[in-house]
Simulated assay, not measured.
Amino acid sequence: MVIIVINIIIDFRDLEYLWSVILMLIMYTCAIFYKPEKIIEKHYGWILDINPLYSIIINFRNSIFGLPIDMKAFLISIIFSLVSLLIGIFLFYHKQDKFILHI
């Protein structure tokens, strides 16, 4: 994911400041400091299901509390990681000649 963001920031320098706001929003929506079952209504649970960072956090919580790993969340995080890596590598090789011009 970082490779994708860097490729975008190289072209648009102002996104560097916007990215910090986006990261703060991601932190609050990932249910790091609260239990989502108590706050989010049942018909909004799909928002957490598509959030790849929540999948990583839920498996970390399960390992800390001695619960089995949630395979659905594990597969979501693996697929998201591989897709973002492939997109990042493609963008890097596509724009690698322009990086040195913008640094």
Results as ranks from 00 to 15, higher is better:
71 M>E: 09
9 I>T: 01
16 E>F: 13
84 S>H: 03
73 A>N: 00
6 I>M: 10
99 F>V: 07
94 H>P: 03
63 S>L: 11
10 I>F: 03
63 S>C: 12
90 F>L: 15
74 F>P: 00
87 I>P: 04
92 F>E: 04
101 L>F: 14
90 F>R: 14
19 W>M: 11
44 Y>S: 12
33 F>P: 02
15 L>D: 06
70 D>C: 01
46 W>C: 05
74 F>W: 04
20 S>F: 14
8 I>H: 03
48 L>S: 01
102 H>N: 14
23 L>P: 01
31 A>Q: 03
87 I>R: 07
29 T>Y: 08
40 I>R: 00
87 I>T: 05
75 L>Y: 11
72 K>V: 15
66 G>Q: 15
49 D>F: 09
96 Q>W: 13
2 V>C: 07
61 R>Y: 15
78 I>T: 10
83 V>C: 06
55 S>G: 11
42 K>R: 12
102 H>V: 14
54 Y>F: 14
14 D>T: 08
62 N>E: 08
26 I>E: 08
16 E>G: 13
28 Y>E: 14
25 L>S: 12
71 M>W: 07
20 S>P: 02
35 K>H: 11
70 D>S: 01
54 Y>I: 02
82 L>Y: 11
14 D>F: 13
31 A>P: 00
101 L>D: 05
63 S>K: 15
25 L>T: 14
102 H>A: 07
59 N>E: 02
55 S>L: 05
71 M>A: 14
69 I>L: 11
14 D>M: 10
26 I>Q: 12
67 L>H: 05
70 D>N: 11
85 L>S: 13
21 V>T: 10
69 I>Q: 08
48 L>A: 03
31 A>G: 04
99 F>M: 12
29 T>A: 12
17 Y>V: 13
75 L>P: 01
16 E>C: 11
13 R>Q: 12
69 I>G: 09
24 M>A: 06
53 L>G: 09
35 K>R: 09
59 N>V: 08
56 I>C: 08
94 H>S: 06
56 I>T: 06
44 Y>M: 10
36 P>V: 01
93 Y>E: 13
25 L>R: 04
42 K>Q: 09
89 I>N: 10
92 F>C: 15
77 S>G: 03
21 V>S: 09
23 L>I: 05
4 I>L: 03
24 M>S: 15
25 L>C: 12
94 H>F: 09
71 M>H: 04
59 N>T: 02
27 M>R: 15
22 I>P: 02
9 I>G: 00
56 I>G: 05
4 I>M: 11
14 D>R: 04
56 I>V: 12
85 L>F: 07
38 K>D: 13
79 I>Y: 05
34 Y>D: 05
75 L>S: 05
76 I>C: 01
34 Y>E: 02
61 R>W: 02
33 F>W: 15
62 N>M: 05
96 Q>I: 09
87 I>F: 03
45 G>T: 03
46 W>M: 03
94 H>N: 14
33 F>C: 12
95 K>F: 07
62 N>C: 05
1 M>E: 04
71 M>D: 13
98 K>Y: 14
83 V>P: 02
85 L>W: 13
68 P>E: 08
15 L>S: 06
57 I>C: 05
67 L>P: 01
58 I>C: 07
77 S>F: 01
36 P>M: 08
90 F>C: 11
96 Q>P: 04
91 L>I: 07
94 H>Y: 12
54 Y>E: 00
47 I>V: 10
8 I>Y: 14
8 I>L: 11
95 K>L: 06
14 D>W: 08
43 H>Q: 12
67 L>A: 07
